[in-house]
Design a protein around this nucleic acid. Structure first.
Lengths: 396, 396
DNA sequence: GGGGCTTTGTCTTTTGAGTGGAAAAAGTTC
DNA sequence: GAACTTTTTCCACTCAAAAGACAAAGCCCC
C-alpha cells in the first residue's frame, strides 16, 4: 500500500499549515508571508505538488503586473474524526482545510466496550465513504474518547465511565484498519482544539474550555497547544471540591462539582423538583418520558419553569465557584462553556460570569471573555481533524 | 562601554546552557552529546573562547586514547539576582554555572517605594562587589518582586502590597544602572525556577511551587518554563475560595485561602489562642515580643504547643483543599511547598498530603510527590540568576 | 621501550541548502 | 503599441555543516 505523503522539511510543513489555516493563496502572496527566497519557495511548492499534497488552482487577479498562480491544498486530502461520547458517536470527514464535508451522529452507549463501539464508528465512516466523500486515501484520523488517555500510547487509561476500554490500543487498532496515522485524545481536549481551529478561540493562545455534560471536564490550551499534564489527566475538574457538606458523589467524596451539576446530579434535582410538587412542568415531563435528564431541565427552563431555572442557576453558581479559582490560577485569555447544557444558554452563562467576575483576581478577569461554544456538536470532530492534521503537516 | 558578550547562534547558546547545567566537560564528551561534526564543534567552541564566555581547563582523563581538552564557562561570568520580598531584600552574585558566590539578606519594607528599596538593593550589591566577588562585568541581573509583573514591560502592575511600585520601570532603571540585561518577574515564579535549577525539581518539567508567606502564591512551570498567563497574573491563588462562610479577607470576599492561612490570618489565630487561654505558650511569646507572627506559631508548635499545632493543621487542611483542585486541574509531576511557613515542616506537609491524596483525581496523584522546598531562602535568587542566564545564553 | 591500536584535534574537501541577480513571460496603463 | 510592473524561472554564487584525511597524543601488551 502506498504510504500517505508527508512534508519533507519544515518549510513544506509550514506551507501546508499556512494553506490549511488561510486557504488558497497565490505563490506571490506566500512569498510575502514566508521568509524564503522566490526560488526556494518555488522548489518547495513544486515538491509539494509532486507529493500530491498541493495543486495549482488557476491564476490570481493581477496586482499590477503578471498574474500569479494560485496554489491550494489538494482537494482530495481527507481527514477523519471520531468523537466517541458517553452516549453517542460522531464521525466526520473533512478536507485538508478542515472543512467538514460530512458528519453523522448516532446514539451509542460507550459502555458496550471498545470493539463494539469502534466497529460502529467504522460502520458510520463506511456510510460517509458510500456518499462518495472519500475518493482515495484517508490522510489521518483523530479520535476523542470520554475519559483520560495516555496520548503517547494512544489508549484510554483507567477511564471511569468506559468499562472494557482500559488500555485498549485504540490508536493502533484504528491505524491498522484505516492505514493512516491516528491520534487519540480526551474528547474535551479535542473540543478545545476545535474551538481553536474554527470557533471562538481562533485568535487566543491560552484558554480553557469547560464541558458540562455527563461529566464535567476542562480542556487546557497553553500557547496554542493542548496541555495534558504529566500523566494525561490534566483538566479533570469534575471532582474538585465545592463544599464539604455537599451531596455525595459517585467518586466517594462529598461536595464534588459533578455531584452538584453533572448529568446525574441534574437528573436527581429534576426528579426531586417533580416529586416535591415544586415543578408541575418537570412532573409532566417525567410522566411522558418515564425519566428526567439534563435536557428536560433545559426544555423546562426555556419554557419558563421556575424550578428548572433555579436548578440551572445553582449549578452555574457552583461551576462559577470552581472556575473562579481556575481563572485566578491559570489567567486564561478566554473561557468557553460547552457541552449538552450549553443549550441552557444565557441563564447559565450569566450565573457563571457573575461568580467568576466577583471571585477571581481582578488582573485575571480584567479582559476575560466567558462565552458559549460556537461549534456545539461539531467542536469535537473539528478538533479531531485538527489534531491529526497538525501531526501529518509536520516533519516525521 | 563594552557590550556584554552573547552567543552568536543556536549552537553556541546550546553549548553554553549545557556547560551551565552539566558543568565543565571535555570537548570529546560535548561531541557525543550535541549533534554536530567534530570540526563544527571545534569552531563554535573556539568562537566562544574568543568571546570570553568559555575557556579551556586542562586535559580530561584518557578514554583509551589521546586525552581530550576540558572546557568550562569562564569563571569570570557573573549573574546578579535581587529578590525583593514583602519585608526583606536578598541580593546574590553567582558564577556562570549559577553557583551562589555571595548572598546577603536585609530586612526592608517594600512599602517604602521603588526608588528607596532598589537603592538599598544596589547598596547591598555594592557590598558584595567590595568583597571582590565581581572582578569585571555583570553579565545579567534577575529581579523578583512580591506582586504581579508585566514580564514584557519589566515592571510591576497594580501590585496590592507594593504602594509606589505600580508601573515603575524596574527593568529599565536597573539595566541603566548596571549596564547589563535585566529581567523582572514575580518572586514566586523565581522560586520555582530556583527549584528547577538546583532544587527538588531538577528533573521535572511540569510542576507547581506553592509559597506560603505574607501572601500565598503559586509558581507554574510548564515544559521547563514559567507559565505566566495572558496578563502575567497566573498563579495568584491567595484569593481562591475555600468556603463561603469563612473569615473575611482583605480583598473584600469571605473565605479566601489567605484569610485562612496567610501571614495576617496566622497572626490573628495565634493572638486568639493566646487571649483565650488556649495556649499559654503563645501567650508567653506575646508577652515577650509584643506581637505574634507566623514564625511564633512555628516556634510554639516545634516546642509542642497543642494550639499551634492545631492552627498549622487547620491551615494545612485549607491549603490542601485548594491544592487538591489545582492538582486535578493541572496534573503536575511535583508539588513544592515553600515560604516562611515551610519551617512549620512535616506537620504542615502531612496535613497537605493527606487532603490532596484523598481529594485529587487518582490518576493525577498516582505518582505525585509533595515536598518541602530544598533551597529555602536561596530559591528566589537562584531563580533570578537562572531567569537572566536563560536569556543571556540564548540568541538575540 | 617499542609496535599496534584507539582517541582526539586540525585541516581540507565535499555537499547541499539557500540567496540574489538577470532575463523571460505575462499584464497593465496610457 | 510603447513603457512600466509583476511574476516566474534559471543560474551562478555564498555559506554552513558534514565528511574525510591526517597527524598528534595516549593506552596496552609484550
Amino acid at each position: 500500500m502506498r504510504m500517505t505523503a508527508r512534508p519533507q522539511n519544515v518549510h513544506q510543513a509550514r506551507l501546508l499549515r499556512l494553506l490549511r489555516d488561510e486557504g488558497p493563496r497565490s505563490r506571490a502572496e506566500l512569498g510575502d508571508v514566508v521568509r524564503l527566497s522566490r526560488s526556494k519557495l518555488a522548489v518547495e511548492l513544486d515538491r509539494l505538488v509532486e507529493l500530491g499534497l498541493v495543486e495549482g488552482a488557476g491564476l490570481a487577479a493581477s496586482r499590477g503586473g503578471r498574474r500569479s498562480g494560485i496554489v491550494r491544498l489538494s482537494p482530495r486530502l481527507r481527514f477523519v474524526a471520531f468523537d466517541i461520547g458517553a452516549t453517542s458517536i460522531d464521525v466526520a470527514v473533512t478536507d485538508g482545510e478542515l472543512e467538514v464535508l460530512g458528519h453523522v451522529n448516532e446514539p451509542c452507549d460507550v459502555r458496550q466496550g471498545a470493539t463494539v463501539v469502534l466497529d460502529r464508528a467504522l460502520d458510520l465512516l463506511g456510510k460517509l465513504r458510500d456518499q462518495g466523500l472519500i475518493d482515495g486515501q484517508v490522510h489521518g484520523t483523530g479520535i476523542g474518547v470520554p475519559g483520560p488517555v495516555s496520548f503517547r500510547d494512544g489508549m484510554p487509561v483507567v477511564p471511569p465511565i468506559m468499562p472494557g476500554w482500559d488500555r485498549f490500543p485504540v490508536r493502533d487498532a484504528i491505524g491498522q484498519e484505516l492505514g493512516c496515522p491516528v491520534l487519540v485524545d480526551n474528547d474535551v481536549n479535542l473540543m478545545a482544539l476545535g474551538e481553536l481551529t474554527s470557533g471562538v478561540a481562533r485568535s487566543v493562545d491560552d484558554f480553557l474550555l469547560v464541558k458540562i455534560g455527563t461529566g464535567i471536564g476542562c480542556g487546557i490550551v497553553v500557547d496554542g497547544a493542548i496541555y495534558r499534564g504529566v500523566s494525561g489527566s490534566a483538566g479533570d475538574i469534575g471532582h474538585i471540591r465545592v463544599d464539604d457538606d455537599g451531596p455525595v458523589c459517585a467518586c466517594g467524596n462529598a461536595g464534588c462539582l459533578e455531584a452538584y451539576f453533572g448529568g446525574a446530579a441534574l437528573a436527581r434535582d429534576a426528579a426531586a423538583a417533580a416529586a416535591s410538587g415544586e415543578s408541575a412542568h418537570l412532573a409532566a415531563l417525567l410522566e411522558t418520558h418515564g425519566e428526567l435528564t439534563g435536557e428536560h431541565v433545559s426544555i423546562a427552563a426555556a419554557a419558563g419553569d421556575p424550578a428548572s431555572v433555579r436548578i440551572i442557576r445553582e449549578g452555574g453558581r457552583h461551576v462559577g465557584q470552581v472556575l473562579a479559582g481556575l481563572v485566578s490560577f491559570f489567567n486564561p485569555g478566554l473561557v468557553i462553556i460547552a457541552g449538552g447544557v450549553a443549550g441552557l444558554g444565557h441563564t447559565l452563562l450569566a450565573e457563571i460570569r457573575s461568580v467568576v467576575y466577583r471571585r477571581s483576581a481582578p488582573l485575571a478577569t480584567g479582559n476575560l471573555p466567558i462565552v458559549l461554544s460556537e461549534l456545539a456538536g461539531a467542536a469535537g470532530v473539528v478538533g479531531g481533524a485538527r489534531l491529526i492534521s497538525d501531526h501529518v503537516f509536520s516533519t516525521a
